[in-house]
């Protein structure tokens, strides 16, 4: 089993919470894992990415090689496109549809979505809205993690166990609402993938 994921977003959107959930699940499933992240200047509203590599064999490079990513998982649509050079021919783009506009020259949002739709394997979802509907307005990242989980060969209970492990100290309510957001994302991806 091997799963190379590029997590994408904008500094401050909290993509590392997604990395933490999937990474923790990988560890509890006894898999090898490396996860590199961006600290420093870019965290101030710049484009940020995290490379998450999971495998049943030893992982060497901390970076996903070009053309090798099984998935681009993005919390922002334009950022999903930035990392296409890393996506493998069979790879999936899973992205939030909601733009994060903090630059004056942000392109036309429709055109961005159209560009993503040109790719054969993609799931575009309004994760902000789905999080709200699941009763967790701050759960966008968990919705995205849930959608991604469908494509990663790690048992669901390990994934949900990771959420419990990471949010447990914040109380059972927080765990519950994060799991609800996670499940909403997973169900949506299930329908889309068919």
């Amino acid at each position: 089993m091997k799963s190379d994921i590029i997590l994408a977003g904008v500094g401050g959107q909290g993509i590392l919470s997604i990395a933490a959930v999937i990474g923790q699940a990988a560890i509890s499933a006894g898999l090898h894992m490396k996860q590199s992240e961006v600290h420093g200047m870019s965290q101030r509203g710049g484009d940020v990415q995290s490379h998450l590599r999971i495998s049943d064999k030893e992982v060497f490079s901390d970076l996903v090689p070009h053309g090798a990513a099984d998935m681009i998982l993005s919390v922002e649509p334009m950022e999903a496109l930035r990392y296409l050079p890393w996506l493998s021919k069979q790879g999936w783009i899973i992205t939030n549809s909601q733009p994060f506009v903090n630059i004056p020259n942000y392109p036309d949002a429709q055109a961005i979505i159209a560009e993503i739709e040109k790719k054969p394997r993609h799931i575009i979802m309004n994760a902000d809205e789905m999080a709200k509907a699941a009763g967790n307005s701050r759960g966008m990242n968990m919705v995205m993690a849930g959608a991604a989980s469908l494509f990663i060969d790690i048992p669901l209970e390990k994934m949900e166990g990771a959420i419990e492990f990471l949010f447990g100290r914040k109380g059972p309510e927080i765990v519950k609402s994060n799991i609800a957001a996670f499940r909403a994302g997973r169900e949506f991806a299930q329908k889309k993938r068919g």
Binding site: G11, M41, R44, G46, L81, R82, N102, N105, A111
Partner: peptide
């Protein structure tokens, strides 16, 4: 390649 539509997003 990254499509041309993608704009740079410098830190701010």
């Amino acid at each position: 390649p990254t499509p041309a539509i993608v704009a740079g997003r410098p830190p701010a």
